[in-house]
Design a protein around this nucleic acid. Sequence first.
DNA 1: TTGTAGGCGTTATCAC
DNA 2: GTGATAACGCCTACAA
Lengths: 340, 340
Amino acid sequence: MASDSKPTINDVARIAEVSKKTVSRVINKSPLLSEKTRERVEQVIADIGYVPNPQARALALRRNFVIAAIHDNPNAQFLVNVQQGILEGLAGSDFNLMVKPVDRNSPNITDDIRDFLVRQRPYGVVLLPPVSENDEIARLCDDLGCRYVRMGSVRLDEAEHTVSSNDREAVCEAVSYLIEKGHQRIAIIEGPKGFTSPQERRAGFEEALHSAGLKLDEALVRPGSYTFESGVAAGQSLVEMADRPTAIFACNDEMAIGAMIAARRSGLLIPEDLSIVGFDDTPLSSHVWPSLTTVHWPIVDMARTAALKLIAPDDVEANARWLLPSVLIERSSVVPPAAR
Amino acid sequence: MASDSKPTINDVARIAEVSKKTVSRVINKSPLLSEKTRERVEQVIADIGYVPNPQARALALRRNFVIAAIHDNPNAQFLVNVQQGILEGLAGSDFNLMVKPVDRNSPNITDDIRDFLVRQRPYGVVLLPPVSENDEIARLCDDLGCRYVRMGSVRLDEAEHTVSSNDREAVCEAVSYLIEKGHQRIAIIEGPKGFTSPQERRAGFEEALHSAGLKLDEALVRPGSYTFESGVAAGQSLVEMADRPTAIFACNDEMAIGAMIAARRSGLLIPEDLSIVGFDDTPLSSHVWPSLTTVHWPIVDMARTAALKLIAPDDVEANARWLLPSVLIERSSVVPPAAR
DNA sequence: TTGTAGGCGTTATCAC
DNA sequence: GTGATAACGCCTACAA
């Protein structure tokens, strides 16, 4: 059963009575080959079950048939979604996915990544946020001749090196939706400082207010750290206000659900007493009750696109496409504000 | 900055005025080497920043310095925990982690995995549940000369090929804990049919009842599918019973939290009116209110151990250790039943 | 259109 | 202990 000694290119060449190089040409679909020879070689390949050895190719080509996901992200769902997307993009190809976690806070992060790239020589890397925002690392990839694509909430690089959502616009749309429903006192639970995505989401929030002629009430801004607990804390402090908001936009679903639970614990009805909108569209958002109106963040699509950019670098059209819009998903956590 | 043309073993040999093979011996820590030669070579290696090329080694050794996680598991948190554990085990080594998802329901799953193993030639693979329960796949690894470790809730193979928790015992302990608190009417929300872990957990549940002299009330058994929603449904149907249980054991945390929410929606207080115990100890379990008493499933440790078994096959002690016990984590979702 | 020679960077064999 | 020499399996350059 087990192909103990696997056939090599030499076996194919010998049996098909051609040279190694001819077999190599067949494998690599070289155009300069007689149809007859190609057919004969392909027949032999099928007969003896020859499979090219990726290690040998990697050595000769000085490049591994591997795409690496470099990340420093604590969120399990995000990470798995990205992996799924990359794997979808890689499906049917000879490429495999390698996972390389790094420590954002380590001073050696650049050396660590350099070492990884030099040793493993991946064909390309997908940089996930927030590490994707580090220009030095992108430059490092470039210097080492490693293809890269950066994922983010804004365009971080040239189109061929970028896959991005439009968080700002999407949040603006979501908050405008709240305003259309009649909400005026809208709170925001922010994400962690120092990262781009929360900044963009906050910016979109303000944009929506401004274009509706509302002004930002700093009393309705709460810090958050993308965790459930921070959502609970922020939500609690908001609902305890004398003049509490009628709606909350949370910069991610986990915090939105935290806020939802805090509000309910304080005896409020969701959405009657308080409307809530999240961001991400995690599985949880459709599982909670009431189901959460949220912005769908197309992570899987983004990751798939990133993978395709890496392995099909000549696909001009794919390389030009860098924006995958986030869209609002209406569920049941938003209604017009109750008259009070 | 970039080491454009990396130094090779030849460069080291030339500068150190030894043969390639001697350098190779230094790299591989061969014992038959004069101390003097070793030092000189190591000095040169450090001086010119030589890094062995993994692709060339892979070709010569016919084996890649890669550990693959083969999985068919929908649960993001589980998957990420396993990856984290494997990466911890691999830290400091030259190994990297590759992710290989497979489709449990595909008839080609064996061929798919065989193809992957033959092409990629990973040094070893970690088989995650439920695919780890497939004996045919384990045999396949063996046939192809690929080291493997199977993760599971029971011992699935010889010690060196197994890393397992003891779900049955752990659940028995957890349910006994409920009984000690005074609970007699204890419900169970089961996991999906056809998998080992839910079976084991159910068995542990029954064991606890029997050893306390209680008998299983089939009316208190609810099916579940490890999803939040199934927990909500099961929880709701349980709390609506005329003679409802005073405690629920759910086969995983997601369902436990679902049941918790269903109960609260029906106006019950947790834990005063209903105690709940889960299984897994996911991050969420300490985030909810009240925090969930649950069984800690040591996935990260299991995965780390699996990785170590693969890359240090001569470590007899490590290879003998295959059981990593699950332990009960007492939080605040369990109190004695209220008198009624 | 096809073949030959040589290289990719490492390890294994077997002398010395 | 150490070193030529030959694998490992594929690819590129150049020749035919």
